Amino acid sequence: MELRFILKQLILPPGGFLVLLLFAWLLWAWLGRPRAAGLVVFIGLAGLWLFSLPVVMEWAARQIEREPALAEAQWPGLAQQAEVIVILGSGREEADPAWGGDQPSVTAIERLRYAARLQRASQLPVLISGGLHYGQPPSEAQLMADVLQRDFSVPTRWREERSRTTWENAQFSAELLKTEGVRRVVLVTQAAHMPRARWCFERAGLEVVAAPLGFLGVPNERPVGGWLPESKALWQNTRLLNEALGMAVYPLIYR
């Protein structure tokens, strides 16, 4: 897991751009190739600029976010289409003194809020899937279940606390649910993550009703049409690149 994390940080921005700059320095200082070094620096800076543009983020999100949002009128009918709401973990923020400990990440809170509304409308039971964050307890599932109950008054029937990846979210959740005879799930995660998550859960033998949220492929409404760089767009584009790479790699390593 540690090696996977390190490689991911070296590939995704901003780590990938820093690796390019290091490569450029090696070309110039060690190999005496100033023109090649200049080209690599240009590629790195151009990539950093593009990844910082909201307009690029908006376009990229539209390529990845394939599942439509559920209309609110559809929420009560979910009980006829599925048997459980599955919420996927999304990391945590550590040791926040305002809360007296670790808390679910911002994206995890978004998933909980949306799932709470779906649960009240459909009355379906809830499963939360998320293992240990960097191997440290409590699990993401436990943190999210506590928040779901305390802040949204929604109970959690099942907690899957072993998973470290989206593939494991699906495999271990399917193990829990199939012992109860459950095979149809409402899957709650960000819109960009939904294609990879759905693929994993269907490979685990579950029928999926997609409930995506947090769409990024919407008009950005930024000044100058989104052509000015900003740090938020860099973070969002990094998430989208992570999903694009995940969708490319998962079919190669998981069967």
Rank of each mutant, 00 (worst) to 15 (best):
200 C>A: 15
206 L>K: 06
193 H>R: 12
218 V>R: 15
193 H>V: 13
200 C>E: 10
211 A>W: 14
205 G>Y: 08
185 V>Y: 02
180 E>C: 04
201 F>T: 02
170 A>V: 11
189 T>H: 01
176 L>G: 04
217 G>P: 12
217 G>L: 09
201 F>P: 02
202 E>A: 04
199 W>F: 08
191 A>E: 05
185 V>E: 02
209 V>H: 08
213 L>I: 11
175 E>C: 02
212 P>D: 13
210 A>F: 05
214 G>S: 15
180 E>Y: 02
169 N>D: 13
184 R>A: 12
181 G>I: 08
193 H>P: 13
204 A>S: 08
214 G>A: 15
169 N>I: 03
186 V>S: 02
215 F>E: 08
196 R>Q: 15
192 A>D: 15
211 A>G: 12
216 L>C: 09
203 R>G: 14
172 F>V: 06
179 T>L: 14
178 K>C: 07
194 M>Q: 10
207 E>M: 12
180 E>S: 13
192 A>E: 14
189 T>S: 15
205 G>R: 04
199 W>P: 00
218 V>S: 09
204 A>W: 03
176 L>R: 09
183 R>I: 00
196 R>V: 15
212 P>E: 06
170 A>S: 09
186 V>N: 01
194 M>R: 06
191 A>G: 12
182 V>W: 09
193 H>G: 09
168 E>R: 07
189 T>D: 01
215 F>V: 08
173 S>Y: 01
177 L>Y: 03
192 A>S: 15
172 F>G: 07
218 V>P: 07
188 V>E: 11
193 H>S: 13
201 F>H: 03
208 V>A: 02
181 G>T: 11
187 L>P: 07
195 P>Y: 04
173 S>F: 00
169 N>H: 12
180 E>A: 14
212 P>L: 13
174 A>N: 05
198 R>N: 04
186 V>Y: 03
186 V>H: 03
212 P>T: 10
171 Q>D: 11
185 V>D: 01
173 S>W: 02
215 F>H: 09
188 V>G: 05
175 E>W: 04
176 L>I: 14
215 F>C: 09
188 V>R: 03
214 G>V: 05
200 C>S: 13
209 V>P: 10
185 V>Q: 03
181 G>L: 04
172 F>W: 10
181 G>N: 09
189 T>G: 03
214 G>H: 11
205 G>V: 09
218 V>M: 11
212 P>R: 05
200 C>M: 07
212 P>A: 10
216 L>S: 13
187 L>R: 03
178 K>D: 04
200 C>V: 00
193 H>N: 10
174 A>Y: 01
205 G>S: 05
212 P>H: 10
185 V>G: 06
202 E>N: 02
204 A>C: 08
202 E>K: 00
173 S>G: 00
216 L>Q: 14
178 K>Q: 15
172 F>S: 05
204 A>G: 08
177 L>W: 03
203 R>F: 09
186 V>P: 00
196 R>T: 15
186 V>D: 00
181 G>F: 04
179 T>H: 14
212 P>S: 12
179 T>Y: 03
174 A>T: 04
187 L>F: 06
175 E>H: 09
200 C>T: 00
191 A>D: 05
181 G>E: 03
206 L>D: 06
198 R>H: 05
171 Q>W: 14
177 L>H: 01
173 S>I: 03
189 T>M: 06
213 L>D: 00
178 K>H: 07
